[in-house]
Design a protein around this nucleic acid. Structure first.
Lengths: 200, 200
DNA sequence: TACTTTTGCTAACACTGTTAACAAAAATAA
DNA sequence: TTATTTTTGTTAACAGTGTTAGCAAAAGTA
């Protein structure tokens, strides 16, 4: 018959171990250092055991992509104060995006790390929709406030996301200056222009 | 004594062959498919010969990064009409940046493909300065025209570059829609906001 | 106890970048 | 021309990578 409760729990524990070991390797040594054999060593099992829990190595990365978008969503949610006016909320969203990237650079790297694989399949992920919906909410509010109902909300979403990603990619990942943890001047500058482009 | 003229020429030819074979592999199969052994097969020499011309595989990628920044510079130069007003020239610069990315996506990928390696060493490249100088020229002109001399030109450079990169990364590399070859609506939208943030 | 399923292992395959050691060819010196 | 040195290019190995087939031992079931 089906597997016993205990076995299912043990399997889940093993999967969790694979995830947490992977996390540690990536945090300490970067994505390039993550290998199936290294994970196997860490969990003290042989290599094929990994493949019982993840179809392949890509599936492990994908897990962190999903987790990343979830964390991003929560960070945005935490930063945005619904009672404030839309202009400030857009700034808060930008700050949240920035904070997520700064605090979870490895996640950001694999989520958007165009490196080669992940961006092709960016539409395959679930949690990404939660994030874009959150952005769209604010954009709709801004469009409404500006009275310019003809503005394309999806265009504005793409523009906003592009600006945020560009800043993070250039400033955070290029120059490894972990100094300016607070939202950078570049971010303020770019978001100013963006807000003007809707509200003014 | 020194190597004969003929030998030097033959060596250069071999190096050129390594480059052109690498280019072909990357164009057809992507960066992930580029391997030393594959290059060796293509040039019909054994593996260690490659290492006579390039210190390691990274050096081959770096060659294309340099080449890429050179091509980018030339594209910007071609698009910008010096006789026009600064607002239009900024739009032309953006168009040039976009066109380069669309026409040389593999170059763009390795230049900015944060994948892992290249962005760390973005300051090590020579040609990048030519590009940023070109951007700074226009920014200075715009600042002068606006009368706002207190504006930080390097902040504006970073903001501009971030916006351009963000758009290219999100729109070009994520969704592989080669349909909209012309500067995208997102680009227009974002650049509008940027220009306003200086000139208005 | 006998049988079946699950579990986890070893060992291999086909790759990767890189390099040491060596043979053949070419250039130079006697 | 012959002997010596230098250059050139090879094979073969090392230490990795992702992935999987085949098998033995342990666990669960009849």
């Amino acid at each position: 018959m089906g597997l016993s409760e205990r076995k299912l729990r043990q399997q889940q524990e093993l999967k969790d171990q694979i995830i947490s070991c992977s996390r540690e390797i990536v945090e300490n040594e970067g994505w390039a250092a993550l290998s199936i054999r290294k994970i196997a060593d860490a969990i003290e099992y042989s290599v094929p055991v990994i493949y019982k829990h993840f179809e392949n190595k890509d599936a492990i990365s994908s897990y962190f992509v999903e987790e990343g978008f979830d964390k991003l969503f929560m960070e945005l949610d935490q930063q945005i104060n619904p009672t404030k006016d839309v202009s400030l909320k857009l700034r808060q969203l930008a700050k949240g995006y920035w904070l997520f990237a700064v605090n979870h650079p490895k996640h950001y790297e694999i989520m958007f790390g165009l490196g080669i694989p992940s961006c092709d399949r960016i539409n395959e992920y679930e949690n990404i929709k939660k994030v874009s919906d959150k952005m769209l909410n604010l954009i709709d509010e801004a469009i409404l406030a500006s009275g310019k109902e003809h503005v394309d909300r999806y265009l504005k979403l793409k523009t906003l996301w592009s600006i945020l990603h560009g800043i993070v990619a250039i400033e955070l990942l290029s120059l490894n200056t972990r100094e300016n943890i607070c939202p950078s001047a570049v971010l303020e500058d770019a978001i100013d222009g963006y807000i003007k482009s809707i509200l003014v």
